[in-house]
């Protein structure tokens, strides 16, 4: 989880930042899913003869969160394409030379 977070903050390339953001989020998903697990349980789909199921609620939340994540990613990537066209670079430290961006 922290790796992703580190990539977001430290990466110089904007695409890499977005990748880091995704890694960061995926790890948070893992946190949620792991708490839904019940020892000896099965996937929360009704089957005859099974009485222990894992908790479906974290699964639902993370389904939502994954979709939210991909939405953010696509907007971020679209921004990067526009930045590339406007500035000719996607390296963070190269903006500082041109006006006061980022």
């Amino acid at each position: 989880m922290m790796t992703g977070f580190y990539i977001v903050i430290s990466a110089n390339n904007l695409v890499k930042k977005i990748v880091g953001l995704n890694v960061f989020q995926t790890s948070v998903f893992m946190l949620y899913i792991s708490m839904g697990k019940v020892n000896g349980g099965t996937a929360p789909i009704l089957v005859e003869g099974v009485t222990t199921y894992s908790n479906p609620l974290p699964h639902v939340l993370i389904l939502t969160a994954i979709v939210v994540g991909v939405a953010t990613t696509s907007v971020g990537l679209a921004l990067i394409i526009r930045i590339k066209r406007a500035y000719g670079t996607v390296e963070e430290n190269e903006f500082e030379n041109q006006d006061d961006a980022i």
């Binding site: 953001l21 907007v75 971020g76 526009r82 406007a86 500035y87 961006a101």
Partner: peptide
């Protein structure tokens, strides 16, 4: 054109914030 970098920075910060809340 600087609105693009501003929006990008906002996006990264905002997503980190939202993930922290999560």
């Amino acid at each position: 054109r600087r609105c693009l970098t501003a929006a990008f920075r906002y996006l990264v910060m905002g997503t980190i914030g939202a993930t922290f809340i999560l």
